[in-house]
């Protein structure tokens, strides 16, 4: 599958790095991987790094919004970082930045979430 999910905990913050192409075909895989880890505990907040994401469409928006609802229902916060211009336009169009912050890189995202948590 042309999509890789890399995950790492930084205390209670789960960092998820996506690389490859996030579309309808790969969305279920990403969703399953992330939910498995989130349900296992340890995760209060979520940082989604899109640095190496080469392609994303509305299926990706669905995955992001779905994880946002999950984290929010548990009282946590979510942020995205390292977003390329095309993906930025998609996120902006869908109103995503009204509900979650965007950061330049993982470091900024982590300190941003640590401040609010």
């Amino acid at each position: 599958m042309n999509l890789q999910v890399e995950m790492e905990h930084h205390r209670n913050i789960l960092i998820v790095r996506l690389s490859g192409e996030l579309d309808h075909h790969t969305a279920d895989h990403v969703r399953m991987k992330m939910d498995e880890t989130i349900q296992r505990g340890l995760t209060d907040h979520l940082v989604l790094s899109l640095k190496n994401l080469q392609f994303m469409d509305s299926s990706g928006l669905g995955v992001i919004l779905g994880r946002y609802k999950l984290i929010k229902a548990k009282g946590g916060k979510m942020a995205v970082c390292d977003v390329n211009p095309t993906v930025y336009r998609l996120l902006d169009m869908s109103g995503l930045f009204k509900i979650m912050p965007i950061y330049d890189n993982e470091g900024h995202a982590l300190s941003g979430l640590e401040v609010v948590s």
């Binding site: 469409d57 509305s58 669905g62 998609l90 869908s94």
Partner: peptide, 19 residues
């Protein structure tokens, strides 16, 4: 309509036509 989807159970965002 932006954000309209007939399949919310599939986690669609309803943004395809708008995009």
């Amino acid at each position: 309509q932006p954000l309209y989807t007939s399949k919310p159970e599939l986690e669609r965002s309803g943004m395809g036509f708008t995009i």
